[in-house]
């Protein structure tokens, strides 16, 4: 690539101001002007469109927050629908929080998502290592099966999973919610590809020093793979935190419900109490949005690398 780059650079440098302005010397992270050009009007227009689009995307969330801070009476007042007549209040939040089920569902969601993440990442990384670095009878067939399983929609498994949990007497347990979610063929595939891409020199050195497979896996490859493991872990965690269908089918005991399931199960109980409903929605949304504010870069990277399923 450098060989084609060089002549272009020199010729653009010889062509004085216009070319110099378009040359992308600016930091890559801040994006660039290639897409829309660098006319002032173009940029102002682009900024305007972007601002309107972002506002449209933010309005639903802002509306939810505003409603959550209204009194019940103001929330259902069609004549003063925008700004509440009696000012803002925390009543909705305190009522919802004191009922006590929301913190419980958050805890359930966290425990379940954390368990799913730990098991999935560990088990998938070990399998990825096995498929990438070891030889055993049936390795190719088993890997082919794993890749093929990426095509199976989890939705078609809910009926047999439920039957299975009845057989195993696991209905309405954490195990029932967690176990089926830990099978992630796509993560095995991604991690196998990732291990394939790591140079073998380091482990050769460790092997000469007498390290076995477990030491090589645990002390050499895993530390080298932290960014990839983080990407996979973030992706799995978000998926498990937000998963709805299986936790919904496998739990009927409110004490075991996850956040997405629990919060909708009491929808009808609220009746027309929109301020309370929105207060619970805001509280339920908060954890992951706050995490995103702190770890934006890692989460963005996780989606970009894991989201394509290693394609």
């Amino acid at each position: 690539m450098t060989s084609t780059d060089l002549p272009v650079r020199t010729s653009s440098a010889s062509r004085a101001p216009r070319a110099a302005r378009t040359a992308p010397a600016r930091s890559r992270l801040r994006g660039n002007h290639h897409v829309l050009g660098d006319s002032r009007l173009g940029r102002v227009l682009a900024l305007a469109v972007l601002a309107v689009l972002a506002l449209v995307w933010l309005v639903p969330m802002l509306w939810a927050v505003l409603t959550a801070f209204k009194s019940e009476q103001d929330a259902s007042d069609p004549d003063h629908w925008l700004w509440p007549r009696h000012g803002l209040t925390l009543k909705g939040f305190s009522t919802v929080w004191e009922r006590g089920d929301l913190p419980l569902w958050m805890l359930n969601s966290f425990l379940i998502a954390a368990a799913v993440t730990v098991v999935t990442v560990l088990v998938s990384a070990m399998a990825g290592y096995a498929f990438s670095r070891t030889l055993f009878a049936g390795r190719r067939v088993l890997f082919a099966l794993t890749v093929a399983a990426v095509l199976v929609p989890p939705q078609i498994l809910i009926v047999p999973w439920f039957r299975q949990m009845l057989t195993l007497h696991l209905v309405d347990t954490y195990a029932a919610v967690i176990l089926p979610q830990t099978v992630a063929p796509v993560m095995v595939f991604i991690l196998k590809k990732h291990f394939d891409s790591l140079p073998r020199e380091l482990e050769e050195a460790a092997r000469i020093d007498g390290a076995g497979h477990w030491r090589i896996f645990w002390s050499v490859l895993l530390p080298l793979s932290r960014p990839m493991l983080a990407a996979v872990a973030i992706f799995v965690f978000i998926g498990a935190w937000n998963n709805f269908l299986w936790p919904f089918v496998s739990t009927s005991d409110p004490a075991l419900m996850t956040l997405p399931v629990g919060i909708t199960s009491v929808k009808d109980a609220y009746g027309i109490q929109y301020a309370q409903t929105m207060a619970s929605a805001v509280l339920a949304a908060l954890p992951l949005v706050v995490v995103f504010l702190f770890f934006q870069r890692q989460i963005v990277k996780s989606v970009a690398t894991t989201g394509l399923g290693g394609q």
Binding site: N32, L53, I263, Q296
Partner: peptide, 27 residues
Amino acid sequence: TGLPGQWVWRLAFFAPYLLPVGVVSLL
């Protein structure tokens, strides 16, 4: 295009994806 406010745009467009479907539907 590298317009100022990258952080805000990413938040605005991606944050909804982080909401549990229960929250999205109530909203």
